[in-house]
Amino acid sequence: MVFDDLDPRPARGAAVAALGREDLDLYSVEELDERIEGLKVEIARCERAREGKQSQKSAADALFSFKS
């Protein structure tokens, strides 16, 4: 029996907060470069999600706008 659905979800932003607390002194230059690239990919993913949500919001605002 799998009880993964019963495990509490991590709080929103918990992963970002954990990244901010991580000791970067332990990383090599190459590892920091890889980390930066990974963060850039995540930023781009967030920006795409934000653009999609903004587009949906704009469409909804236009649909439900009752101004003449």
Rank of each mutant, 00 (worst) to 15 (best):
E47M: 01
V2T: 10
D61L: 13
M1P: 09
V2Q: 12
S68V: 13
G52L: 02
V29C: 00
D5M: 04
K67Y: 10
E30A: 11
R35W: 06
D5Y: 07
M1T: 06
E42F: 03
G20N: 10
R45H: 03
R21N: 00
L6E: 08
S65D: 15
Q54V: 12
P10D: 14
D4Q: 06
D23C: 04
S65P: 01
K53H: 10
S58H: 13
E34N: 10
R12P: 09
A59K: 15
P10L: 13
R50W: 04
D5E: 14
A60G: 03
S68D: 14
Q56I: 08
R35L: 15
D25H: 07
D33G: 03
A14D: 14
L6G: 02
S58R: 15
M1C: 11
A18N: 04
C46N: 06
L19H: 05
K40V: 01
R9E: 07
K40W: 06
G38M: 01
P8K: 05
A44F: 00
V16H: 08
F3L: 13
E51A: 13
E42S: 09
I43P: 01
A14G: 00
E31I: 02
R35S: 02
R48I: 06
S68P: 10
A18G: 00
E22H: 03
F3Q: 09
A14P: 02
G52H: 06
A14H: 09
F3C: 01
Y27N: 02
A49E: 14
G38V: 01
E37W: 09
L26S: 10
L24R: 15
Q54M: 13
D61H: 03
A60N: 12
E31V: 04
L24N: 02
A44S: 07
A17K: 05
G20W: 04
K53W: 08
D7Y: 13
E47W: 01
M1V: 08
L32K: 09
R21E: 09
G13V: 01
G13D: 07
R12D: 14
L26D: 06
C46G: 02
Q56K: 14
L6S: 02
A49I: 05
D23F: 04
S58G: 11
G20Y: 00
A15K: 09
A49W: 08
L19M: 06
M1Y: 11
S58C: 12
V16W: 08
E47N: 04
E34R: 14
A44H: 07
Q56P: 02
A44D: 09
E42A: 14
S65Y: 12
D33W: 05
M1R: 07
A49M: 10
F66A: 11
L63H: 14
P10E: 14
M1Q: 10
A59I: 12
R48M: 05
A14I: 04
E22P: 01
Q56T: 11
G38W: 02
R12C: 05
